[in-house]
Amino acid sequence: MISIDIEKKLKVYQGQRLLKIAAEFPTGSIIKIHGPSGAGKTTFLKIIAGFIQPENGKIVADKVTWLDTSAKIILAPQKRKAGFVFQDYALFPNMTVQQHLEYATKDGAWIKRLLAIGKLETLITHKPEHLSGGQQQRLAILRALAIKPKLLLMDEPFSALDADMKTGLINDLRSFFKDQGTTVLIVSHNQQELEDLADRELIIDTNFHE
């Protein structure tokens, strides 16, 4: 179970707006997050991961307090180890596909399985600049999965994939999430995209309530 109750002031064109979200997600649930551009979806994920600090809030994951502003508890992102798939992929230009996964885990068998899931086995010596957009996006997903996270945060993770690749990957991810009991929060613009995968929904709109 992850429980989140945060408040963060967002800078917008007119001045400031308050991003206020209170929600609880059972372990193993898959939550689709959607809302208009600029509503604060990415900020919300980054607050959970520990990259951005809210003004007020509390985040408790599996009985471990990650954040409690009133008690001045801020767990570093390294300790939270929430898998994160970035919208811009955030791949390391100096590393090959294989090196990306080796940087995340030393488990060779797991790396092999991940490469098979992402269909990147033949591209292990390629650096990101020599991968297509879809291949880069798959690598970003595999890198986040490499640490076998208990919580996975995905920001528009399937936007660059073609329909066949997306269907295959989502099927593989579904069984992976079930095996690992991973709680997954997925930001997506495409509401239909995750209908088969997600079992819950969180709407972040510009009025900022669940």
Binding site: K46, A49, G50, F51, A76, P77, Q78, R80, K81, A82, G83, F84, F86, D88, A90, L91, F92, P93, N94, Y103, A104, R143, A144, A146, I147
Partner: peptide
């Protein structure tokens, strides 16, 4: 996001600096 990606993998600031930032 490069640093953030590295932190999310559990890597320290020093590991991130030497393995991700400096080589790039």
């Amino acid at each position: 996001s490069l640093s953030q990606a590295s932190y999310s993998l559990g890597k320290s600031k020093w590991q991130t600096f030497t393995k991700v930032l400096v080589p790039n």
